[in-house]
Design a protein around this nucleic acid. Sequence first.
DNA 1: TCTGGGGTCCTAGGACCC
DNA 2: TCTGGGGTCCTAGGACCC
Length: 388
Amino acid sequence: MKTYFHIDLDAFFASVEQLDNPGWKGKPVIVGGLPGDRRSVVSTASYEARKYGVHSAMPLSRAVQLCPEGIFVRGRYRRYQELSSQIMAIFGNYSPDVTQMSIDEAFLDMTGTERLFGKAEDAARRIKAEVKKQTGLSVSIGVAGTMYVAKIASGLNKPDGLTVVNAGDETAFMLALPLDKLWGAGGKTQKRLRDSGLFTTADIYAKSEPLLKTMFGDSAGSFLYQAVRGNPGMIFGEEAKNHSISSECTYDFDLTDRYAIDTALMELSMNVLYRMHKEQVKSRTLALKIRYEDFTTVSVQETGDFSISNADDMFERCRRLFDKKYEQGRGIRLLGVACEKVYDRDIPDQKSLFDFGNEKKAKIEEAIYKMQDKHPEIKIRKARMLGN
DNA sequence: TCTGGGGTCCTAGGACCC
DNA sequence: TCTGGGGTCCTAGGACCC
């Protein structure tokens, strides 16, 4: 039997602000934006702010209404990252197998650490005390024989919580759990479950897997079947095979002007390209997202024969996708650019392996791209024409 | 009240190939 | 003339998570 800890930092961003601004302790702190910021949402609310009904993802304007005396801040992500790294390092002292899930949570495989740290509950208390001592922050820990149950358990007694589910009790734990705490079933699925007459985890437990698959599809059906049993097979933190890199921006005021749109596309392209460069990856698939003023969202993507090679190339592809999808005259509240399925920069483009004509063309373009770095006045268009 | 930004995974349909 | 079945890749949209 395995032992997993899931550790969650309590109201992380807001807690860091209270830590660095001692006068804010015990007060409602809301991270996400300043009152008056347009189109912002709450990133994290301190527990004091939550008493007013403020919560993550809520429009900031709503939060201001609910909690006018709240302390509003935009957020200092470098500082949060710094503390996060410090805390993850502490976790590393307790387990050789730490899987960080996000900036504020991680799984620890604690199997076989009893001789070093005593029973799970004692080890959990030690970790909590050490994080508190070293950083002044509190964490909540869930202990269970599966990652899935540990994850849910850590959320039950926040903040500063410790919830232990003993080996063998996973299914009983799940059957006692309110349905809305079922991780992985969000708002839409919750409604579908209710509409199907399933109101508790026990209701789901009573259905066969084939029936659940028929009702909710193969994947969701199988997930629900496993989840209410404590989901022993579920694995978190596996190496993702289809990595993507994206940048998007919601604009304070809707864009309609073509020059402003082009500038925005260029800026997003540069962000993505820079991060691809840092990760030493490339991509053949470019995706564009447009959110109109009425919040309807559309997307287009295109996979080319060659990977995206430079900023101008990327910008050209962006513009082409934009022209293909944009409905003239509609205001744009958000634009997003993404490179999907990125792969290692050193892997040669597949097509060029089989098509020497293309390989040659790619080399010519590559040379021109290099030249262009030195002489920005040479346009990419010319590279295209050369290839033909 | 009016809805962020960064991701992952799933589905369904179409194209194309054997 | 009518037509199977499987596999892979691609696209658009949607659900979900932190």
